[in-house]
Simulated assay, not measured.
Amino acid sequence: MGERLTTGEVCTRSVTIAFRDTPLLDAARLMRAEHVGCLVVVEDGVAGRRTVVGLLTDRDIVTAVVAPGLDLHTLRVGDVMSADPVTVGEDDSLIDLMRAMRAKGVRRIPVVGAQGELIGIATLDDVLAILSEELSLLVAAIEHEGQRERQLRR
Rank of each mutant, 00 (worst) to 15 (best):
Gly2Thr: 04
Glu3Met: 08
Glu3Cys: 02
Thr7Ile: 00
Thr7Leu: 01
Val10Gly: 01
Arg13Thr: 13
Thr16Phe: 06
Ala18Asp: 07
Ala18Pro: 06
Thr22Leu: 00
Leu24Glu: 09
Asp26Ser: 02
Ala27Ser: 04
Leu30Pro: 03
Ala33Arg: 13
Glu34Ser: 14
Glu34Asp: 12
His35Phe: 03
Val36Pro: 07
Gly37His: 04
Cys38Glu: 14
Leu39Val: 06
Val40Lys: 08
Val40Leu: 12
Val42Asp: 06
Glu43Lys: 05
Asp44Val: 04
Gly45Asp: 05
Val46Lys: 13
Val46Pro: 08
Thr51Asp: 04
Thr51Gly: 07
Val53Cys: 09
Thr57Gln: 07
Asp58Cys: 01
Asp58Met: 03
Thr63Ile: 12
Ala64Gln: 14
Val66Asn: 13
Asp71Gln: 11
His73Trp: 01
Leu75Thr: 07
Val77Trp: 02
Gly78Ile: 01
Met81Ser: 06
Val88Met: 07
Gly89Thr: 09
Gly89Phe: 08
Ser93Tyr: 14
Val106Phe: 07
Arg107Cys: 09
Pro110Gly: 06
Gln115Ile: 01
Gly120Leu: 04
Leu124Ala: 11
Asp125Cys: 05
Ile130Arg: 01
Glu134Ala: 14
Glu134Ser: 08
Leu137Trp: 14
Leu138Thr: 14
Val139Cys: 02
Val139Phe: 06
Ala141Lys: 11
Ile142Met: 11
Glu143Ser: 15
Glu143Gly: 08
Glu149Pro: 04
Gln151Trp: 15
Arg153His: 06
